[in-house]
């Protein structure tokens, strides 16, 4: 029930010159699923999985652990790291494609559980590209003056939609959440979130599907692999151009952690050295829209991010949808 106190009196903010990321937060479930665990379930092996997708272990949510639960933890960590209070947040966006039900949306419940009173709240489904879409719309909302501080979360329980007798998918997908707090830049400062380059290829929409409520995730691996390794590096290059950043100036390239071979191929074609490629997939698996902010939060925790430097983000997945932008590392 909504009390009168929980209705925000909306007054637009002055448009901002740009937005920036203040902080990241991440969450991985406690349960570790190793390649050897999978080899006991389906006809596969540690060597086969490492060579095909580059994953050594991944995390799986517990039966009672929901997309919302994981989003709350990651969002709460990002909020704490930002130095802002829940009252400062006026928009919550959650990118997800793996919720247990479609109503209510995740974002409103996450906001409520974090004590964020009456923010704008919506979910984004652009599959594995979802976080980059959400980050772009957060930035645009701040620039337009319709929000001041935005909590952006990618959260997924992909394993709820995986057939654990299908060795082509059960070795890849995993669960987790990542989040970022986005704020306006100070007057006169350059934007810390560059222009987004996004799009979709609906003609290939049937290549990655969850076809119904009782269906499992299915994908045509070779076609998706070909698309990702040939169509995505020009998108990433254009995002750099639009931000006015040379590829050689990037401190890190954080693509959606789809498959190590896909992202190594994209990095090679883009001209990003291997040591500047985020490879969180090795121990996190493919967590769809959570993978980019989860990778960033884990790098931030390890001290592997260089504050003030340029990072290139590239999301791509079902739809087929894609989005890329350059951000300034907080």
């Amino acid at each position: 029930m909504t009390s009168p106190a929980q209705v925000r009196s909306f007054s637009p903010y002055p448009p901002a010159g740009g937005a920036r990321v203040l902080s990241f937060g991440g969450y991985q479930p406690a349960n570790v699923l190793t390649n050897d665990d999978l080899a006991a379930m389906v006809d596969t092996s540690d060597e086969w999985i490492r060579s095909r997708v580059g994953i050594v272990s991944r995390r799986v949510a517990g039966p009672d652990e929901s997309v919302t639960d994981m989003a709350v933890v990651a969002g709460g960590k990002a909020l704490a790291a930002s130095g802002l209070s829940p009252a400062d947040i006026d928009l919550v966006i959650v990118a997800t494609c793996s919720t247990e039900g479609s109503l209510p949306n995740v974002s409103a419940v996450v906001a409520h559980r974090l004590g964020i009173v009456a923010p704008g709240a919506y979910d984004v489904n652009a599959a594995c590209a979802g976080f980059c879409y959400a980050l772009a719309t957060a930035s645009d909302s701040i620039r337009a003056g319709s929000a001041r501080h935005v909590l952006v979360i990618g959260a997924e329980k992909m394993t709820a939609w995986i057939d654990f007798t299908d060795r082509s998918t059960c070795i890849i997908f995993a669960d987790g959440a990542g989040a970022a707090v986005v704020a306006p830049v100070a007057d006169g400062e350059p934007p810390g979130i560059g222009p987004v380059v996004w799009g979709s290829a609906g003609d290939l929409g049937d290549k990655i599907t969850i076809a119904g409520r009782n269906a499992f995730l299915w994908q045509e691996g070779q076609t998706v692999f070909r698309w990702a390794t040939t169509a995505m590096y020009p998108i990433a290059a254009r995002a750099c151009e639009r931000a006015g950043v040379e590829v050689s100036d990037l401190s890190v390239f954080v693509p959606h952690q789809a498959n190590l071979r896909i992202i190594e191929s994209i990095a090679r074609k883009l001209g990003v050295p291997r040591e500047r490629l985020a490879d969180d997939i090795v121990h996190a698996g493919n967590t769809s829209s959570a993978s980019i902010p989860l990778a960033l939060s884990r790098m931030a925790e390890r001290g592997d991010l260089k504050p003030g430097s340029a990072a290139l983000l590239l999301g791509f997945g079902a739809g087929l949808c894609y989005a890329a932008q350059v951000i300034t590392v907080p």
Partner: peptide, 22 residues
């Protein structure tokens, strides 16, 4: 493996101008 075959097909298209569909 099958993924390397895709990469070989893409490289062959660049080199020979012949598309090899999946």
């Amino acid at each position: 493996d099958s993924l390397s075959m895709v990469e070989i097909a893409v490289a062959a298209q660049d080199k020979f101008g012949v598309e090899i569909p999946d």
